[in-house]
Design a protein around this nucleic acid. Sequence first.
DNA 1: CGCTGTGTTGAATGCCGTCAACGTCGGTGG
DNA 2: CCACCGACGTTGACGGCATTCAACACAGCG
Lengths: 232, 232
Amino acid sequence: MTLDRSLIAGLPAFAGLEGRDLDAVLARARSSRFPKDSEVFSQGAEASSFFLLLNGHIRVVRTSPEGHQVIARYINEGELFGIAVAMGRTIYPASAVAAVDCVVLTWPNTAWPEIQARAPAFGASAYQTIGTRLQETQAQVMEMSTQQVEQRIAHALLRIVSQSGKKTPEGIEIDFPITRQDIAEMTGTTLHTVSRLLSAWEDEGIVKGSRQKVVVTDPHGLMLVADNRRRK
Amino acid sequence: MTLDRSLIAGLPAFAGLEGRDLDAVLARARSSRFPKDSEVFSQGAEASSFFLLLNGHIRVVRTSPEGHQVIARYINEGELFGIAVAMGRTIYPASAVAAVDCVVLTWPNTAWPEIQARAPAFGASAYQTIGTRLQETQAQVMEMSTQQVEQRIAHALLRIVSQSGKKTPEGIEIDFPITRQDIAEMTGTTLHTVSRLLSAWEDEGIVKGSRQKVVVTDPHGLMLVADNRRRK
DNA sequence: CGCTGTGTTGAATGCCGTCAACGTCGGTGG
DNA sequence: CCACCGACGTTGACGGCATTCAACACAGCG
């Protein structure tokens, strides 16, 4: 059966496409479900497809030869990922793991030239996505070069919350499970340090944590921490 | 006068282009010279052009709001840079500074669609360049997360030397002026630490330094340091 | 000849990683 | 239903690596 175009009509990746072109693009895709903790693709594997996250949250993880893991980013609903083909790469440079149950559209790489010809706006969107990620990654390098761990963690939390925050009576909550270890791997530190800082912030009423959950109760306060403008 | 196609015929960015197409691409470019320490473009400025380095070495620098500088990368001869247009960005996210006197080809952004249509291989090359840089930057994040300063500096030197090394009787030399401060800004550390480590390595016979110059006399030894496999 | 940019080195401080022990939650199986 | 176990989280103590502070040396240049 064919996919309904309403699935993707509102997404920025498809902005400016006509109905017929939408259908043409969709015709090459298939939709599938990935249960929590399953891998969508694996670091080092031959890159044969590219993806779009319809529903859920995915973390992109790089593992070093020595076994250290680093979380490169989280993918949000509506975003393209695994687009090695657009970068002229033949293997995936990282793994993609479902942080919760996910629904994903998959295209074979072979469809890329056709889609690009048929829907140039789609290609442009992919390139823009890559450009944005390059810039974000460079910003992360800057952070790691110039800021202390406390500010980096604060920034990371603010970034996640701004992209994947869900309002609750208590504050803004990260709407997928995230461990202290995850936060450590995003910021280049250890779960011990993350735990200590979250505890301290909880005492100050800035955040509220529980198992695999973080709620930011005072975003403004957290921004002060991020900018190192807080009276200690 | 028109530029000679031999200028660019051998470059990977133009691989697979016919002579006529080469001329068409070149027709939109102009060549100019940038003296040492001059800016080719400036962080935050409107991105109106993209560039190719014909001769020299350029460093790409990002400055934080607080004034901290980070060297994102060095551009080597034959590489594209400042290709914000290919990423759908309207301002330059960093500054480009000539590390030595440079010769640069400049295209107006308005020529991008035409060039891409006329020479698709050129566009693909640009996208691949961006993809490669994204991956390198992510590798840098991993390094900064998992490795000690000593290994990061060793890796940085090896990277520079492999890309811009010049063989001399004494070893492999970085063939543009580079200060301890520059190395510090590449690796997220301080010039003091760099100076100390270079001095230590010089005692071990691994490198030889002088004012704004570094010569690697024992690349294999430096690799051992980079992998932390050296008996201290 | 002084000034500025660059480089070296010593000493002290402190951030944060490491080591260690314990607590807690949630799922699973008897 | 309860006991167990593994994953996750917390907290204290300690120590080391790198920054910070400081002083000096040296080269190039106007």
